[in-house]
């Protein structure tokens, strides 16, 4: 069955086809969300929301589009919404911490890994990188995340972001330059 036939079956309301869709694209959706939120539990919840939205929006899905592109878009939008929600929550938590007790969970290393210290260090670096990416302009952050964490090429990113390949290359290039600048100033000011 080619993709267009599969989409027709999906749109006809076949639960079996929807099950196949979830199984086939679970990794893609979950990892995309994980690349944005950097938290496995949140990524699982977001993946669930993505597929629920996909199930509800199947009727409006154009048959000439690619399923993966459509799912990537839903996943990106959901993840960005989640990041915004968390940022608001953090601001509120900061305000409440000024008046009450603070509740910051400490990072715990996975002791099953061969080198917990090394693992913690790389997680710490990734967290710094992630917070720096969050501060990039929207499109640069999306292009950079899809390229680095999802391993997508310029053509695929261009399709998802509905732009041209040179624009994607430019976005990634600017993202890297901005990240370097941001991290450099962060280290020189002793923020990290």
């Amino acid at each position: 069955m080619n993709e267009q036939e599969f989409i027709k079956t999906l749109k006809s309301g076949s639960e079996k086809a929807f099950g196949e869709l979830v199984e086939k694209y679970q990794g893609l959706v979950t990892n995309t969300c994980y690349g944005f939120v950097m938290n496995k539990d949140d990524a699982d919840d977001l993946a669930q929301e993505v597929f629920v939205e996909a199930h509800q929006g199947l009727a409006n899905f154009r048959e000439d589009s690619k399923i993966s592109t459509w799912l990537y878009r839903i996943a990106i939008n959901k993840s960005i919404d989640e990041i915004r929600r968390k940022t608001r929550k953090k601001r509120f938590a900061y305000l409440t911490s000024l008046f009450g007790k603070e509740d910051h969970p400490l990072p715990i290393a996975d002791h099953n890994s061969p080198n917990p210290h090394q693992q913690m260090e790389s997680e710490e670096r990734l967290a710094i990188l992630n917070s720096a990416i969050d501060k990039l302009p929207g499109n640069q952050a999306i292009a950079f995340r899809l390229s680095k964490f999802e391993g997508l090429g310029g053509k695929e990113i261009a399709e998802i972001m509905d732009t041209s390949i040179p624009s994607v290359d430019a976005l990634i290039h600017r993202a890297k330059a901005n990240l370097k600048r941001q991290l450099y100033s962060g280290y020189s000011q002793g923020k990290f």
């Binding site: 690349g35 990734l126 990188l129 680095k148 890297k176 370097k180 991290l183």
Partner: peptide, 8 residues
């Protein structure tokens, strides 16, 4: 830090 993206 930038290389840590590759170890994701």
């Amino acid at each position: 830090i930038l290389q840590s993206a590759d170890s994701f």
